[in-house]
Design a protein around this nucleic acid. Structure first.
Lengths: 155, 155
DNA sequence: GAGATATGGTTTTAATATGAAACCACATGG
DNA sequence: CCATGTGGTTTCATATTAAAACCATATCTC
């Protein structure tokens, strides 16, 4: 149904999640779930995608533990789709995507929605990468490495 | 070549970027670009994808201003692909994806690479969303809203 | 300078995924 | 019992992807 990761990248933490959310719709479904949508029909109306595709994406998200199906809520025999802890963990990624989108995909005069702090009504801070001691890190300031196996518990 | 965003979501800053990076490979190409890869052959070797697909993805990334083609570097008649400012802006998104992947797609005993502060060799901090005044924000603490049109320049 | 090899693609063709629409099952309302 | 709404699945046409073959240019060898 969805492409399997089958190349040498399979042990990269960037590549592996793409089976779960690497397609066009899945992230939008998750975004809608963060906005409180729960029902099949709500997602379909919001996204305007074909029902079979939505069905497949929801199944895939559930199978990856990003959404969970819960029985009722309004007493009907239907089920609802809610974010799991793993799904909620996608919040920073969605914010990063949103901020990048705001920065680079809108004309200066083009209005769009933005993310606000509910308490103050002010825009949220920009996401930024920092070191343990708080320095702002640019891409050049980082390396990806296999950590030396930590010796906790077996020394 | 690549799917066009054509539904009502087109003015959402989460949805619009998906034309550019919403497919399986593009983010991995960008990740490799952050790792310093520049040549067609380098990307192909690293990712193991078909040449026609790589060609299409590179074209799409270039057409979206994420990569730029520069003439030489080793004097050969070929071109290289380098990140633009817009492309570099994807760094937080990649870090978010990486952190989420590390958290949820590996067994506790399964080793994988991680992102380190080049200076200290320590892991980087976790990405987190904060308010203007520095409070940590959970999804529930935020709203998406169309900002009231700022009056700068015409009051 | 003719032939072998490497790089950087494009073209061709088959497999796969996507999307629209029709269909189905169940429940609710009259 | 008939009509309607929700939540899907099935069917089928089309679009995307992928593998492999092909091509152009450049370099390397003799």
């Amino acid at each position: 149904m969805v492409k399997r990761t089958s190349h040498r990248d399979a042990d990269c933490p960037v590549a592996r999640p793409l089976d779960a959310i690497g397609d066009w719709w899945s992230l939008l479904i998750v975004r809608d779930a963060f906005d409180g949508l729960r029902r099949f029909g709500e997602f379909q109306k919001s996204l305007g995608l074909a029902k079979n595709i939505l069905s497949a994406r929801l199944k895939n998200l559930v199978s990856h533990g990003i959404l969970d199906t819960v029985p009722a809520s309004d007493g009907s025999a239907y089920q609802e789709y809610v974010l799991t802890g793993k799904g909620r963990g996608l919040f920073p990624l969605l914010v990063a995507l949103r901020q990048w989108g705001e920065d680079h995909f809108f004309q200066p005069d083009e209005s769009h929605v933005t993310l606000l702090d509910r308490g103050t009504g002010l825009p949220v801070r920009r996401l930024e990468l920092r070191s343990q001691d708080g320095r702002l890190l640019e891409p050049e300031d980082t390396v990806v490495k296999r950590l030396p196996p930590s010796e906790k518990g077996d020394g």
